[in-house]
């Protein structure tokens, strides 16, 4: 990397997140590289999902949630007084733990995002649907079934369709919150292949409980833990290979060798 400072896509600077009185994230600063997969790992309840959701302001939905510090997408502040959660979310796609297709047709599930951004032309929408489905390698399977309900598909196909739906709004980064945890091992490997392909063009952050998965797909890994005061904190953040072969922090070593968590 010639100039690593210029190379990040997402960044947090001194993020503190509170749910009411509960301090959920403590002073987290990290930079997410462009065109890479960053895995957030750590024991249950350490704030992995909370951290992931600070990037697209999904924590805004929780009453009493309060955030300090700043996060950026490119150079644009995510929480600054000028920034608008809706605009931020258009730039950051999100895929959830379980496939959460809307109860409508395959076509509408993908077209609904672009439509909400004002694209009305049928030809344009058709093009977006086809492109998004091709990106997740579903187009050839589904091209004659676009009017069927999305919920008629297998879980793996549904999750692919959720990824396609997120890609249809042309995001700059993708967040995946344990997106393979509801899938069987074969489907998981297929989604992982898709992630690697997408990482050629997007910054991807995944939250995962599955350390093999982190090793298999991620370029960078962030290990989080619950601090003594119950707040989630970032213990170690480095190249995935380095972290798993030569962890710098003994707590990281303890976790990845399975001694706790």
């Amino acid at each position: 990397m010639d100039n690593p400072v210029q190379n990040y896509k997402l960044k947090t600077v001194g993020i503190n997140l509170y749910y009411g009185d509960f301090h959920a994230l403590r002073d987290i600063s990290m930079e997410i590289l462009e065109c890479s997969i960053t895995a957030i790992i750590g024991p249950s309840g350490c704030g992995k999902s909370s951290l992931l959701r600070t990037f697209n302001r999904m924590n805004d939905l929780i009453p009493n949630a309060r955030i300090e510090g700043e996060a950026y997408i490119g150079n644009q502040p995510i929480y600054g007084s000028d920034s608008d959660a809706v605009q931020i979310r258009k730039k950051i796609g999100m895929v959830f733990q379980k496939p959460n297709l809307f109860p409508t047709s395959i076509y509408n599930n993908i077209a609904i995002g672009p439509k909400s951004q004002g694209i009305k032309n049928k030809g344009d929408l058709d093009g977006i649907v086809e492109k998004s489905l091709r990106q997740v390698a579903l187009f050839d399977d589904l091209k004659d079934r676009l009017s069927e309900p999305g919920l008629s598909l297998s879980s793996e196909q549904q999750q692919r369709l959720c990824i396609a739906r997120a890609l249809a709004i042309e995001p700059e980064a993708i967040l995946m919150d344990e997106s393979c945890s509801a899938l069987d091992p074969v489907s998981t490997l297929m989604i992982e292949d898709l992630m690697k392909k997408l990482a050629e063009n997007y910054a991807i952050i995944i939250v995962t409980h599955n350390m093999e998965q982190a090793v298999r797909v991620s370029d960078m890994a962030a290990f989080m833990m619950i601090g003594d005061d119950r707040a989630g904190m970032l213990v170690e953040y480095s190249n995935t290979e380095d972290m798993f072969s030569n962890p710098k922090d003994e707590r990281t070593e303890g976790y990845i060798t399975g001694r706790f968590g």
Binding site: N56, M58, L61, V86, Q87, R89, K90, K91, G93, M94, F96, K98, N100, L101, F102, P103, I112, G113, K115, S116, Q117, C162, R165, A166, I169
Partner: peptide, 20 residues
């Protein structure tokens, strides 16, 4: 999850209500 999914796509609250 419906509402979360809709908002995560960058819909406004009203768009999420109306279209999802």
């Amino acid at each position: 999850q419906y509402k979360e999914g809709a908002l995560a796509l960058g819909m406004t609250h009203w768009q999420a209500i109306y279209s999802v």
